[in-house]
Amino acid sequence: MIDNLAKFHREHEQYYAQAPLRQAAELQARSRALKSLADRWSDVEAGEQTSAIAFAGTEDLNAPGLVAESGILFMEGEDEPAELRRLKREVGMLAEETEQGGAWLNRAMEQAWEIAGSLASYSTLADLLGERHRIIANDWQSAGLQALVARLLRRALELLARVDFSPAALRADLRGERKAPAYLYSASELFDRASDLLTESATLVHENERRWRVFRARVRALRSEQAGATE
């Protein structure tokens, strides 16, 4: 059983030492998009509808270079850009997945802690118990980070929900209090922090690689010794 856990959980963690890094990079890209829009809307003067064609781009609302990078395109006759709706939907899915993953990992570490305690009766593993408990501690900390990431992302979505992204509403805001840029800056900062924590989570799991390798090598050596003694 111990060999099985060491084998498959090491492989499982090899995946989770990489996946959060990809998620962090994607969050950073979304954060940059929000900042680009906030920068633009902080300075630009609100314009008027310049074309009767519904699919014409809005000269005042689109941030330079952002359309090509993110696909986010404000059009004269449209409402909120589909790309922004997708951004919020994908962030919501990431929050859900991260929360569920953190909860699962927390439960798994509760059980792993008990199992690791029972290994104290095996004196041949005594010098590796610190390594095994460090693995658990890292994973437990990662579980807590994932729960916090989910909270940050959900709060960022709540802030974005306060912005009406239709061209007419945005132009009205630009002529008035310019609240939209402030909400976008704050949401992007929460994205940034969530991205940092995802990277920390991946780092914690990645630190376990050598510990798993050393631990499993000892377990396999003990199994070989036992097999040889019974022959």
Rank of each mutant, 00 (worst) to 15 (best):
M1E: 14
A6L: 14
A6M: 13
A6Y: 03
K7N: 09
F8C: 04
R10D: 11
R10P: 02
R10V: 00
H12E: 09
E13Y: 11
Q14W: 04
Q14P: 00
Y15K: 15
Q18P: 01
Q18Y: 07
P20N: 02
Q23F: 03
Q23N: 11
Q23D: 11
Q23I: 03
S31W: 01
S36L: 09
L37Y: 00
L37W: 00
A38D: 07
D39T: 00
W41G: 07
S42I: 05
S42T: 13
D43V: 06
G47H: 07
E48V: 13
T50I: 10
S51A: 12
A52P: 08
A54V: 07
F55V: 08
G57Y: 07
N62E: 09
N62C: 10
N62V: 03
A63Y: 00
A63E: 03
G65A: 07
G65S: 10
G65H: 10
L66S: 04
L66T: 01
V67M: 11
I72R: 03
L73M: 08
F74Q: 00
E76C: 09
E76L: 08
G77Q: 09
E78L: 10
E78V: 09
D79I: 05
P81W: 04
R86M: 03
L87F: 04
E90V: 10
E90L: 14
E90S: 13
V91D: 01
G92E: 03
G92I: 01
G92H: 04
L94D: 06
L94M: 14
E96P: 01
E97L: 11
Q100R: 15
A103E: 13
W104T: 06
N106C: 09
M109H: 06
M109G: 02
I115D: 15
I115Y: 15
S121N: 12
Y122R: 13
A126W: 07
A126S: 14
E131M: 11
H133T: 10
R134H: 12
I136R: 07
A137H: 14
D139Y: 05
S142P: 02
A143Y: 01
L145V: 01
Q146K: 14
A147S: 12
V149Q: 01
L152A: 01
L152M: 06
R154L: 05
A156E: 00
L157I: 01
L157D: 00
E158T: 10
E158S: 12
A161N: 14
R162Y: 03
R162F: 03
V163D: 01
F165R: 11
F165D: 05
P167I: 07
P167G: 06
A169K: 05
D173K: 10
D173F: 06
D173C: 05
L174S: 03
R175F: 05
E177D: 13
L184Q: 08
Y185L: 12
E189S: 12
E189R: 13
E189V: 05
F191H: 09
A194C: 08
L198T: 00
L198A: 00
T199F: 06
S201A: 15
A202P: 09
T203G: 15
H206E: 10
E207Q: 15
N208V: 04
F215I: 00
R216C: 00
R218A: 12
V219Q: 04
V219P: 02
L222T: 01
S224Y: 09
S224M: 11
E225C: 07
G228F: 09
G228C: 06
G228R: 14
